[in-house]
C-alpha cells in the first residue's frame, strides 16, 4: 500500500513501429506525486513525457509496470469501478486547446461534458451551478457559456480547457504543455489561475512543460526525463541548485535568459548520450537525500557527487 496519491513503478511503454523497429518511449520510470502538489516533468523532446501522461490516464495500455492512484491500481485491466474512478478523479489538459474543444458545442456544454457522462449532479440546476462556479473562478463570464470555442482568444480557450478538467474536482490533473501555445502575459495569467485553484481544490498537477522558468515557478518537485528514463528527480531546489546528472546540468545551462548581452555570448554545456559513456540501463536510483534521486551506477554516483 502506498500513501502517495500517485505511484508509478517501473513503467514501460513501447511502440512497435515496424517488424524491426520498436520505440522504447518510456523505459522503466518510477516516481510518485503527493496530494495537492505539483510535479513538473521536463526533458528532451521525444523523451516520453507526453507518453507517461497518456499511459497514466490510460490513453495507452502500459507495456509493463504499475500505476497506483489513490490506492487503486489503474495500469492493468480496468473494470467498471476502476474506469469510473480514473475518469472522474483524474483529468487531462491538452497543449492545443482548439484541437480538443468541439467547435460545434457551446462552451457551457463542453465544460459540463464530464459531469454529464458520469451524472455528477442531482438536477439541471446543480449542473448549471457547477459550470458557472468554475467559469467564474477561471475569470470567464457566465454569458460566455452560450458561445462557441472559436469566439474566444487563445488564452480564454485554454481557460475553458482547464475549466472542463477542474469542474470534475479531480485529485490529479495531467497538464501536457498547457501554456506552450500562449503568449507570455497570458501564460502568466493561466499559471496564476492554476495555482490559485490548486489552493482551493487541493488538486495535484503533473505539469509537463519546456519553459523551465515556468516549471520552476509552479513545481514543488521536478522529474528530468531523457530517452525514456527518469535520470533525476528532486525538489525544485534540489534540481535547480544542486543538479547532479550531466543531462540535467546541460538542460539547465541551456535556459535562455531575457538579457541579450548575456544571451549572445552564453555557451550551453553540451551533453551527448552516445559519447558520454553512460548507459541508462545499467543505472539504478541513487539517493542524495530524502527527496533527491539520480539514476546512475555506483561509479558514476561517486564521480558526480565528488566536489
Amino acid at each position: 500500500m502506498s500513501e502517495h496519491l500517485l505511484e508509478v513503478r517501473d513503467l514501460k511503454q513501447y511502440f512497435r513501429v515496424s517488424k524491426k523497429y520498436t520505440v522504447k518511449a518510456v523505459d522503466g520510470v518510477s516516481f510518485h506525486i503527493d496530494a495537492g502538489e505539483t510535479y513538473g516533468l521536463v526533458g528532451e523532446s521525444g523523451s516520453g513525457k507526453s507518453t507517461i501522461g497518456r499511459s497514466i490516464i490510460r490513453l495507452y495500455t502500459p507495456t509493463s509496470g504499475t500505476v497506483t492512484f489513490e490506492g487503486v491500481e489503474i495500469s492493468g485491466a480496468l473494470g467498471a469501478k476502476e474506469t469510473k474512478h480514473l475518469r472522474t478523479r483524474m483529468q487531462m489538459i491538452f497543449q492545443d486547446p482548439m484541437a480538443c474543444l468541439n467547435p460545434r458545442k457551446k462552451v457551457g456544454d463542453i465544460i459540463a461534458q464530464g459531469l454529464d457522462i458520469h451524472h455528477l449532479y442531482r438536477d439541471r440546476e446543480e449542473r448549471q451551478e457547477k459550470v458557472y462556479r468554475i467559469m467564474e473562478k477561471m475569470g470567464l463570464d457566465r454569458e460566455h457559456a452560450g458561445r462557441y470555442p472559436h469566439q474566444f482568444s487563445g488564452g480564454q480557450r485554454q481557460r475553458i480547457g482547464i475549466a472542463r478538467a477542474l469542474v470534475m474536482e479531480p485529485k490529479l490533473v495531467i497538464a501536457d504543455e498547457p501554456i506552450s501555445a500562449l503568449d507570455v502575459s497570458i501564460q502568466a495569467q493561466v499559471v496564476n489561475l492554476m495555482k490559485d485553484l490548486q489552493g482551493e481544490l487541493g488538486a495535484a498537477y503533473l505539469f509537463i512543460a519546456h519553459d523551465l522558468s515556468m516549471v520552476k515557478y509552479i513545481s514543488d518537485r521536478i522529474g528530468v526525463l531523457h530517452l525514456g528514463h527518469l535520470v533525476e528527480t528532486g525538489t525544485t531546489r534540489d534540481i535547480f541548485e544542486r543538479p547532479i546528472h550531466p543531462y540535467t546540468k546541460s538542460l539547465l545551462s541551456a535556459i535562455p535568459h531575457a538579457d541579450p548581452r548575456v544571451e549572445k555570448q552564453r555557451v550551453a554545456i553540451g551533453y551527448d548520450y552516445k559519447t558520454s559513456g553512460i548507459d541508462y540501463t545499467l543505472g539504478t536510483y541513487h539517493s542524495l537525500s530524502e527527496t533527491h534521486t539520480v539514476l546512475c551506477t555506483d561509479e558514476e554516483f561517486a564521480k558526480w557527487t565528488r566536489v
Binding site: S45, Q95, S180, H210, A254, I255, P256, Y271
Partner: peptide
C-alpha cells in the same frame, strides 16, 4: 521552437 526543450531549441 515552442514544442522543443531548451537544449534542442538552442
Amino acid at each position: 521552437t515552442t514544442a522543443l526543450d531548451v537544449t534542442i531549441q538552442a
